[in-house]
Write a protein that binds this DNA or RNA. Sequence first.
DNA 1: TCTGGGGTCCTAGGACCC
DNA 2: TCTGGGGTCCTAGGACCC
Length: 426
Amino acid sequence: MLYNKNKIALVDCNSFYVSCERLFNPSIIKKPVIVLSSNDGCVISRSTEAKILGIKMGEPYFKVKKIIKKNDVKVFSSNYSLYGDISRRVMKTLKQFSPQMEIYSIDEAFLNLSSIRDENLFEHGNKIRKTVLKWTGIPTSIGIATTKTLSKAANHIAKKEQSGIVNLINTKQIDQILKEIEINEVWGVGRQLTKFYIKNGIHTAYQLKNMHNNWIKKNTNVLGSRTAMELKGIPCVSLKEHQEKRKNCCVSRSFGRKVTKLEELSESVTTHCLNAAEKIRSDNQTTKRITVFIRTSPFQKDKNYYANSKDIDLPVRTNDSIELVKQALIALQYIYRKGYKYQKAGIIFSGLNEVDIYKKNLFSSINNEEKRKKLMKAIDYTNIKYGRHALSIAQAGLRKKLNIKRQHSSKIDTACFDFLPTIKIA
DNA sequence: TCTGGGGTCCTAGGACCC
DNA sequence: TCTGGGGTCCTAGGACCC
């Protein structure tokens, strides 16, 4: 078989955020648990027990409060520094099993297992699961197949299996598995494609696999065609072993309570801008363009909806916080309108690139450049050492209470000594 | 009352060039 | 009044992902 040289495993952490919270709180094991998005807005992670209660992914928290109260569901605000840290530990463990690995998201990775003999794949998968569980405490599921899309599909079924592993290499059950997968669950098939496929009588991954490539090419695009080819077992999406630097950087937040004043929006945009600038500096990048956006809630249909954004192209690419904040506030003034209750504000840096590509042009103000660079370095260093916001600029609002809801935080921080548990000895 | 945040890629169509 | 043909590059917006 020509294509069978490709063996890809998708390792996915089960209910990742919930599993992270459970690590430090054994009392919530085997209980229904959910983790909320920022501002305690939506449900973004559910334990199996919570799924059984009918709590849906992405559902607004207030809509499930009844179920939560009735069933004593444990609720957590999201704690990204914790999840990020645990994720790094999981990925480090996985890397031992295959150096050729693509970290696909905070809780998933593709592993190249081509060097493992077919008959040993299942056992190998078992070893991976056991090791990750032992070393990090995180349960995982594994799908193994000849293409990424198929390994995603296998993983989907593996989540429901006792063993936690589904291996589609050299088996005849591929079609059987694909028949169990609804079309909207196929990797790469979103809302629009689902609508289109269902209209055309395609309801499962199996049916999509058996469609003529010509038909798919004509009616969708290269991505649709790629997905279908991958379901047929022809690899079209390669493993990205080297993480490329990001091309855009977005920082945005909803407000805990609605905001009407320009000053409040300015503070929030400034804070986001500083965070984004710090991020790109840590990647040694500069930005060419910044976009500021604000909007009211899209869900309150009766009220006036307003959303707008403003781009500013910088004359010289930069990662200088002070310069960026200045531009961001100019952009904000363009789009701010009185009389609206704003729900969200954010900033996007785009056209990111390496610092080295930086070239001076006619508009560069060279005088302060070196001094500024040193200042930024000093700020970043201080903030790493003493915590974010230790050094900031006054525009970001001084010691103001952040307008963010986070009522259920576990307050665990594995990267901070202050949170080490203490034991008192009598 | 209360509805997340951060990315990537593709494509059509405009701008521009000869 | 008549008004080519072909190419590249860029970008906004859509679709998708977790």
